[in-house]
């Protein structure tokens, strides 16, 4: 197996970026006056949510490409990106709950953002279950892409539907609802920490996607080799 230099650089780079981001979050960023230390969850919470959304977007575009061109690589990207997105959305939901316990006095509320994140989680879990249930690779790719497109289209509709009920989730970036609880104004140091966390997580996503794609290619090769041995 030949060494993959680009992938190694990316892996080490994302590790260093994450360490730096941790330093910024815990040392550089100032303590939030009202909420205290628990507010530091915010940086990785937002970054994980961002990567989750990005990963699902990538999976959606890859699915469309697969339907258009029948590209096998696109199908692989759709699978791998969905898996990574699922992991990051899970991190986003859990970190949000940890923050919500002291601030909202509850682990969970049926707020639009929380519910939408949960529904997205369910959608992509269902996507992976569907893939497991279909044996033929061509059909699996096509059907999964169809489901991916429908799933992706339904997320904003779900968000709009829950919006019809009231929201208490803070909107830190952009204008927030006046009733939002746990909102705060970002200082420049906080903003820089957030932006750096977003960068670190995005690079991490790139590294993970590359690793996962490589793994998928290798496992396909193993399956082919096993078949060749069986038929020989």
């Amino acid at each position: 197996m030949q060494r993959n230099v680009g992938l190694q650089i990316l892996s080490v780079g994302s590790g260093l970026l994450l360490l730096a981001a941790l330093y910024l979050v815990f040392v550089y960023a100032p303590l939030e006056a009202v909420m205290g230390a628990v507010q530091r969850v915010f940086y990785f919470h937002v970054a994980a949510g961002w990567v989750g959304a990005l990963a699902f977007l990538v999976a959606f575009v890859a699915g469309l490409l697969h339907l258009r061109r029948g590209s096998l690589l696109a199908d692989r990207v759709a699978l791998c990106s969905s898996e990574i997105g699922l992991v990051f959305i899970s991190m986003n939901i859990v970190s949000g709950a940890i923050w919500a316990r002291p601030i909202w006095n509850t682990w969970w509320t049926w707020d639009p953002r929380l519910t939408t994140a949960t529904i997205s989680w369910l959608l992509y879990a269902a996507y992976l279950l569907l893939r497991q249930g279909i044996e033929d690779p061509q059909r699996r790719g096509r059907f999964a892409a169809v489901y991916g497109v429908i799933a992706f289209a339904s997320v904003p509709l779900t968000f709009a539907a829950i919006r019809i009920f009231r929201s208490i989730h803070p909107v830190v970036i952009g204008a927030g609802a006046p009733g939002a609880k746990g909102s705060f104004d970002m200082t420049p140091a906080m903003r820089d920490t957030l932006l750096f966390s977003l960068l670190a997580f995005t690079v991490l996503y790139g590294a993970l996607l590359w690793h996962r794609l490589r793994l998928e290619r290798l496992s396909e090769r193993v399956a082919q080799l096993r078949l060749r041995i069986l038929q020989a």
Partner: peptide
Amino acid sequence: LLFPVAMPVIL
């Protein structure tokens, strides 16, 4: 597969 997709309709 269907419940999460149909969520906006149900809600």
